[in-house]
């Protein structure tokens, strides 16, 4: 571990307290050797308008995906990106961004596929940093190029494909979209009408906890462990010991919930289905449910 953990008392109750850092901690540790801050936003211009001093930008759309194959970077591509950004394999990487860290959590999840060990989130993201009147700079980060090794992407441990979902039927699935998307009233998020699918509804048996319920509305920071447990384990009955798959529309909001389940609540086996509703809702021959109730799980099948 390159940089010691944030000892903030709020985090100690979480399954992995070291996965979050507070704004105070980050402000004090900026510029430390072995610490890299990564900003990942939905709005492609935000970083340029001002960012945490020294932070590098990683754009989810242009940098984490491949050009023609609809997939994330391969091992070569990721190593190349890390070298260019000045990130070493042993570095502690702290992610933050806009929209309560949707994209920050998404970038963190993609880094996880490559087994980068020490990945953390700045609790509350841009919003909290800004609300506290903390410093921004427009100066682009200038980190020396590194020698990042080529690591093969692990698509089994934290990532689910459509056929994994089909095989998983009978075990818990978490849909973190809005209630209207879940019930099938609409095919896209209220503010994102263009990211649709051909059918509206949800994957059979999936329970619904809209992603935003994991955060404190005012600060954008994750809720306490007790609140998160009441939500995921109490309200919809998920079990940290059972294999669980989370999904949303394109996999980014569910990365945010995935982070909460995996690191804050200590779920043993939780995967993010990044194909999510834009894929499932357009696939030929797969069952869906149009209702505000989860519906019955079909028999698991080996492929779709």
């Amino acid at each position: 571990m390159a940089v010691e953990l944030d000892p903030h008392p709020d985090f100690q109750e979480f399954a992995e307290p070291g996965r979050l850092v507070s704004t105070e901690w980050l402000a004090e540790n900026l510029g430390r050797d072995g610490l890299v801050v990564v900003e990942s936003d939905e709005d492609v211009l935000l970083y340029e308008t001002g960012h945490i001093p020294g932070a590098v930008k990683v754009d989810w759309h242009t940098e984490l995906n491949q050009g023609v194959l609809r997939d994330y970077l391969d091992g070569e591509g990721f190593a190349e990106l890390m070298r260019k950004k000045g990130i070493k394999r042993t570095d502690t990487v702290v992610f933050y961004g806009d929209k309560n860290n949707w994209w920050a959590a998404y970038a963190l999840w993609v880094f996880t596929l490559f087994g980068h060990e020490d990945l953390r989130i700045l609790d509350g993201g841009r919003k909290k940093w800004e609300d506290e009147g903390r410093e921004y700079t427009k100066a682009p980060a200038n980190r020396p190029e590194t020698d990042y090794p080529v690591i093969e992407r692990d698509d089994r441990t934290y990532r689910a494909f459509r056929f994994d979902v089909a095989k998983h039927f009978g075990k818990p699935i978490l849909d973190i979209r809005s209630p209207e998307e879940y019930s099938g009233e609409r095919t896209s998020a209220p503010a994102y009408p263009e990211e649709g699918a051909l059918r509206a509804g949800h994957i059979p048996s999936a329970v619904n906890v809209p992603w935003g319920r994991a955060v404190n509305e005012e600060t954008g920071a994750y809720k306490t462990r007790a609140e998160l447990e009441a939500l995921y384990q109490g309200e919809v009955g998920l079990d940290p010991k059972e294999p669980t798959i989370a999904y949303c529309r394109i996999g980014e909001r569910s990365s945010h919930s995935w982070f909460a389940l995996k690191y804050l609540l200590g779920f043993e086996d939780v995967r993010n289905y990044d194909g999510s509703w834009t894929e499932w809702g357009s696939l030929v021959g797969v069952p869906i449910v149009k209702s505000s109730e989860p519906g019955e799980a079909p028999e698991p099948i080996s492929s779709y």
Binding site: D43, V44, L45, L46, T49, D98, R126
Partner: peptide, 8 residues
């Protein structure tokens, strides 16, 4: 302000 692309 926090959505500069939309503003642009």
């Amino acid at each position: 302000r926090e959505s500069p692309t939309t503003r642009a």
